[in-house]
């Protein structure tokens, strides 16, 4: 179980480590793995030292193989490919037919840029375990690393066909679609995210931004509503949502003016409120930028 206490403990151990005391390195590496945080540099350096010291490595018992895996990934993350290779080699000698170690080998190929070899490694592993989520995700990551976004989208869709309740995958797909300018598809992903985690303000915000980007009266109105939802969920603390409400409100009133559909009313009180919150916020946090902001906001408020 992961608790708040673990996080505090991690910070404490990290400080201790930075101060040069290495007694609790095992505990530190363990916590990093448990909390799934990315501290690759520290893990790579200290973990390697730990593994290269036979007496301390033998103290780990069976746990040593987990540490090998962790250090291998950290080493790849810090581009220390030689060290990673040593760790992977040790793991391969111990577990010659392991799927998990095979994946590490594939990742090492990826890190070296040997895309075809990596592809081959993953293909053979997938033959044995066609439903391995990690392998399917690796394929997505590989396509993305090569800049092949549409390929990444294809692989990710294939992954989501089976694992369709995976929020992180939907998030990734939304971002991929956004960078491919396929906003409708991205909006679908954000809807899926909102369904999965309805109280996460950031998903509402992302959806609102997509709707605003797509434009059109209906989308803009929906965008304003989702910005408002973000404001409600974040207690008005999200600056982006405040800006978003102001911008979408202005855009809506401009559209209404253009089409001269006076009978369609849009409540603009929230725009005024949001801009005063923004002003106040800038006054307290960045007073020098306030003169840049206020004319813009006034124009927006008066236009609406």
């Amino acid at each position: 179980m992961v608790g708040v206490g673990d996080q505090v403990e991690l910070d404490r151990l990290e400080k201790q480590l930075d101060a040069g005391r290495k007694d609790d390195i095992v505990k530190y590496i363990d916590l990093v793995r448990k909390l799934k945080v990315r501290r690759s540099e520290k893990v790579a350096v200290h973990g390697l030292a730990l593994l290269n010291n036979p007496s301390s490595a033998s103290k780990l018992g069976d746990e040593v193989w987990n540490v090998y895996e962790q250090v291998a990934i950290a080493a790849m993350d810090t581009n220390n490919l030689e060290a990673a290779k040593e760790c992977i080699g040790a793991l391969m000698r111990k577990f010659p037919d392991s799927n998990r170690v095979g994946r590490l080998e594939g990742m090492w190929m990826e890190a070296n840029g040997y895309w075809q070899q990596a592809e081959k490694v993953y293909a053979t592993l997938l033959e044995a375990t066609p439903a391995d989520p990690f392998l399917l995700k690796r394929k997505v990551a590989m396509a993305k690393a090569q800049g092949n976004y549409s390929g990444a989208v294809d692989s990710l869709n294939k992954y989501l066909e089976t694992f369709m309740a995976d929020h992180d995958a939907w998030r990734e797909l939304a971002e991929l679609y956004t960078s491919l300018l396929m906003y409708k598809q991205a909006a679908f992903c954000y809807e899926e995210l909102i369904l999965g985690q309805p109280t996460n303000a950031l998903y509402h915000l992302g959806y609102a931004e997509l709707l605003y980007t797509m434009g059109g009266l209906e989308n803009l109105r929906a965008a304003k509503k989702y910005y408002a939802a973000t404001i409600e969920l974040s207690g008005g603390r999200n600056i982006r949502a405040l800006y978003g409400v102001v911008l979408s409100g202005t855009a809506i009133s401009q559209l209404l003016k253009q089409t001269r559909s006076r009978n369609e009313e849009e409540s603009m009180e929230i725009v005024t409120l949001a801009s005063s919150v923004l002003k106040r916020e800038y006054k307290s946090k960045a007073p020098r930028k306030l003169p840049l902001l206020s004319p813009l906001l006034e124009k927006a408020v008066s236009a609406s």
Binding site: K224, Y226, A229, I231, G235, I270, V277
Partner: peptide, 15 residues
């Protein structure tokens, strides 16, 4: 979200 704007307004007013 039909009445979300009113709710958000309330949040901002309070703020």
């Amino acid at each position: 979200l039909n009445r979300i704007e009113q709710r958000a307004e309330a949040v901002l007013k309070q703020l």
